[in-house]
């Protein structure tokens, strides 16, 4: 049982290619069950959410994009740092129409490029503002916010906004803004989840990221192990493959008798090779899996969807989370 009822902000990171966006989307669906309302937020301007949900590109505006079992609702927002800066300036400096003029001049883009930390604090700041709606019990509050965050290589920097900003601005409004953001991100209201695959490099990156996040006192949530394949062979069968006591000749004779019209010895060679590959791969996965276990964090396994990810498979993944007690 993984009870996240006290968590308002879920940050999902992972190695590129591990399926962060997919996992973030499935988590948003899962947490919206039974009449809840969640927001899935994207920060890298990739329009990955729109692609996944097969909708037109998302504007900088909260939109309902899916339903969850039991009348739940999933909303989405693509946050753009430039727009967030205009919004920020408008809120704090009464900017009015000058905002769009500045944007046309490329000034906003310039400002966020000039100070990369500024970009991150605006993005995370937007998430924190949405979290605070819940604290204020606003009508438009969400039960949970899920961020499809930057990859593991950049996640600590992305979240550790005060460290970034203090190098830039030691005092002043943006500094105070960063401290407010840190008050949410560094608290138990937030959980940073990492998506990995059972392969050497993604697991290593995950371990490194956990260490970095913990050093920075950022709250690590769970590890999502993505694309886990069915165990087609049991332990006993795998041991036979390893020891070479498979009796492959007999097995291929059985296969031929069951209607596989091939030369039994050719078939035996092929099946044996495939069995060995499978066992090698399973052994590697077992090794990597125990390295993940050593982290001592909750882990959630998500099945490989071999036909490729579409909207339907997001619900399958959400169910897999639910079945493993994610609430």
């Amino acid at each position: 049982m993984v009870n996240w009822s006290g968590t308002a902000l879920h940050v999902v990171s992972g190695k590129g290619g591990a399926g962060k966006t997919t996992v973030a989307a499935a988590l948003a669906i899962n947490l919206a069950r039974e009449g809840k309302r969640t927001l899935l937020m994207e920060v890298e301007g990739r329009q990955g959410i729109a692609q996944l949900f097969d909708t037109p590109p998302l504007p900088y505006e909260e939109r309902r994009i899916a339903v969850a079992p039991g009348d739940g609702e999933v909303w989405a927002l693509a946050v753009d740092a430039d727009e967030a800066l205009v919004e920020y300036l408008a809120t704090f400096y009464n900017l009015g129409r000058a905002g769009s003029a500045l944007r046309k001049m490329g000034a906003i883009d310039f400002a966020t490029t000039l100070a990369p930390g500024l970009r991150d604090v605006l993005l995370t700041g937007k998430a924190c503002e949405l979290v605070r709606r819940k604290t204020k019990r606003a009508d438009n509050a969400y039960d949970a916010i899920v961020i499809d965050a930057p990859p593991t290589g950049r996640i600590e920097q992305f979240l550790n906004v005060t460290a970034q900003v203090s190098a830039l601005a030691k005092t002043g409004p943006i500094h105070r803004h960063a401290e407010m953001v840190m008050g949410v991100i560094g608290s138990p209201q937030t959980a940073v989840h990492l998506v990995t695959l059972l392969e050497e490099m993604p697991v290593q990156e995950t371990i490194d990221a956990v260490a970095q996040l913990q050093t920075a006192n950022l709250p690590v949530g769970a590890i999502f192990i993505n694309m886990v394949r069915d165990a087609l062979l049991d332990e006993k069968q795998m041991a036979k493959v390893r020891k070479g006591t498979l009796g492959i000749k007999k097995l291929s004779d059985i296969a031929v008798a069951a209607g596989i019209h091939q030369d039994p010895s050719v078939l035996a060679t092929a099946l044996l090779q495939e069995a060995h590959d499978h066992v090698d791969r399973s052994d590697l996965e077992a090794r990597e899996s125990s390295r993940v276990d050593e982290l001592g964090l909750p882990t959630i396994s998500l099945p490989l969807i071999s036909r490729g990810i579409d909207l339907g498979s997001l619900y399958l993944l959400a169910d897999a989370m639910f079945d493993q007690g994610v609430r």
Binding site: L232, Q237, L251, A255, A258, I260, A275
Partner: peptide
């Protein structure tokens, strides 16, 4: 198809069925 036919058989047949499913 062959795997399905073998799934109800003895241990060796089941093993064969698994290998065919793997394939």
């Amino acid at each position: 198809a062959a795997a399905q036919e073998l799934a109800a058989g003895d241990a060796a047949s089941k093993f064969t069925a698994s290998l065919l499913e793997l394939h």
